[in-house]
Write a protein that binds this DNA or RNA. Structure first.
Lengths: 194, 194
DNA sequence: GAAATAAATCAACAACTGTTGACTTGATGG
DNA sequence: CCATCAAGTCAACAGTTGTTGATTTATTTC
């Protein structure tokens, strides 16, 4: 049900990728602690033991899921400072069902497992280095750190609300989404200039 | 270590409260799934079985922790719409170490366990009814729902960043805190008027 | 002071967790 | 065609989880 059970010929790289994909799928919807290794392995159509073989353990698997930069990342394509508010607003209203690009995916995974003792450490480092760092550098002003925090707070907050708390005010009609995007763009601008 | 082991005389109400307090302490720092019932019971200085006796189970205990309105709540004291930005900004920069009033506590608990399957349902309902509802009503405009979402996104995002992601830009020197508070007040105003 | 009742503990349950070693299966190269 | 080695499965592990029934302990009531 979760995985298309195409008969994989014995291919280490392929099954590794399958496990990674199944894991990502689970971690996207539940927290680190509530996801079981057997569930992941089942989703990938392999035995649990392979998780240990390929990733060393649950922690290693999670680390690889969250660090997988072949997946769409928040700052994959460079964006210049002037476009930042519009860029972030776009992320906020991005349609979840639209599977061309889930740029918020890695973000949601981080938010979901941030409170788990083991996963938390991994995530905190990642946020500091891969998100807060680049963002602050992009802003460039003398109080860039604070500004970056404010931007990220808005982005994370809306992500929590929409994806985890299931608040629906964001995704109504298309017209509503446009309005919402405009409002958030304005809000991001305020965070940079107020 | 966690609980002052005063010899409690057999008092149902007191031990119930002790369990509740120990549980709150744990849920404030970890997620629903990673906190064990035995850890909670140990913190309260009682046997695990009592948790089942008094609260029916883990889920019931969590529900009671998160619904306990004798504890400081976000909107305990009424606040009029004009003061809302300043009020929310105050919450953002509120010192965590200051134990007179932890008004963000219930919030952090919600954020920490929102991604756990069982705890998630409870929390989602609570956010809608007890937070988003009053907030939207307080704002009163025709697009109040969207505005409330924006405010809550900022509040939650900064909560996540500060408490869970351990980002330290918020709590530096006293001067920094003042500046930070001012910025956030301005941001909340923008969310209401942009 | 003995009986009744509530409070708390003990012990064990069944289910599940992540992990590990031994085993089987399949493909590959000579 | 057989030996080699990687890929995958199986089974069991030791630990933990939440939960429950029986049992003991303290308090109250007559």
């Amino acid at each position: 049900m979760a995985r298309t059970t195409t008969i994989r010929k014995r291919d280490a790289a392929a099954t590794r990728a399958a496990i990674l994909a199944a894991a990502r799928e689970r971690f996207l919807r539940e927290s680190y602690d509530s996801v079981g290794l057997r569930d992941i392995a089942g989703g990938a159509g392999v035995d649990v033991a392979l998780v240990g073989r390929y990733f060393g353990g649950k922690e290693g698997l999670f680390r690889e899921v969250v660090m997988d930069d072949k997946r769409p990342n928040l700052f994959r394509e460079p964006v210049d400072a002037a476009d930042l508010p519009a860029f972030l607003a776009q992320l906020v209203i991005e349609d979840e069902a639209d599977d061309r690009e889930h740029r918020m995916e890695s973000f949601v995974i981080m938010l979901r497992s941030a409170s788990s003792p083991k996963a938390g450490e991994i995530i905190r480092d990642l946020v500091h280095q891969d998100v807060l760092g680049p963002l602050s550098e992009l802003i460039g002003s003398d109080d860039a750190d604070l500004r970056a925090n404010m931007l990220l707070a808005i982005l994370m907050g809306s992500g929590v609300l929409r994806t985890i708390m299931k608040v629906d005010a964001f995704d109504g009609s298309e017209a509503q989404r446009i309005v919402c995007g405009e409002r958030f763009r304005c809000l991001f601008e305020a965070a940079l200039s107020c």
